[in-house]
């Protein structure tokens, strides 16, 4: 059977499961359901499973995509519910379909970043944060793959932003580049911490909301 794509949520206590552990978890969930995944044909065969966009530890998501291949026929409509019987708490399969569009057409990620201020959000903070993201260039330090620190300008990777103060949180509804290169939404908070140390939040929560293609249409 062709390549299938599973949409799932990752929330609650499960947000602390790392990418590799999640891969292992899914391998087992499929086996519990009795689905045999197709394996690679190499010397050390491994099941063909891949996540569209690895999710950083600690972030929750409503829009994770997992591509996989199985031998034999699968009832896509029934699969999410069947898999959910075997999931750890907090991973919820939502939908499944035949993967037609290549992952490279996935262009943008909409997400919610909550900057939490224990003393409440002041109008000054909202203004300062808005002003910050209105700049032409926002340079922060980022660890590179070679573990060195490098300056990067994250501004070109931000597509759109909307701000709202909700209780003790300043919520940013952000759409950012998904890949090649993508922007980890947590870096929006890092930008605030770096450029506006006096408005550094006490805690940051990140939630992925949806995935989009280059035409700003939902990516499936």
């Amino acid at each position: 059977m062709a390549k299938l794509r599973l949409l799932f949520r990752k929330e609650g206590r499960t947000v602390y499961i790392s990418h590799l552990d999640l891969l292992r978890t899914f391998q087992r969930v499929f086996l519990r359901e009795g689905l045999v995944l197709r394996h690679s044909q190499g010397f050390h065969p491994h099941p063909l499973l891949s996540f569209a966009l690895p999710l950083p530890v600690g972030q929750s998501s409503d829009c994770e995509l997992l591509d996989f291949e199985v031998d034999g026929q699968v009832d896509c409509a029934a699969l999410p519910e069947n898999l959910n019987r075997f999931m750890p708490e907090g991973i919820v399969a939502v939908d499944c379909w035949e993967a037609v569009r290549p992952i490279r057409e996935l262009d943008a990620l909409r997400c919610r970043v909550e900057l939490i201020y224990d003393g409440g959000v002041t109008p000054e903070t909202v203004q300062a944060v808005q002003d910050l993201f209105a700049r032409q260039e926002i340079v922060i330090q980022k660890r590179t793959k070679r573990k060195a620190m490098a300056d990067v300008d994250i501004r070109p990777l931000i597509r759109s932003l909307a701000f709202a103060a909700e209780g003790d949180a300043l919520c940013i509804d952000a759409t950012v580049a998904a890949q090649n290169p993508g922007l980890n939404p947590a870096l929006l908070a890092v930008a605030v911490e770096t450029c506006l140390p006096e408005h550094a939040p006490d805690f940051v929560r990140v939630q992925r909301l949806s995935l989009m293609d280059g035409q700003e249409m939902p990516f499936r």
């Binding site: 609650g12 206590r13 602390y16 978890t25 969930v29 530890v57 600690g58 075997f86 750890p88 708490e89």
Partner: peptide
């Protein structure tokens, strides 16, 4: 951190 939260399958 995953070792401090529980929520595993069959908990």
């Amino acid at each position: 951190p995953a070792r401090y939260v529980g929520g595993e399958y069959n908990e």
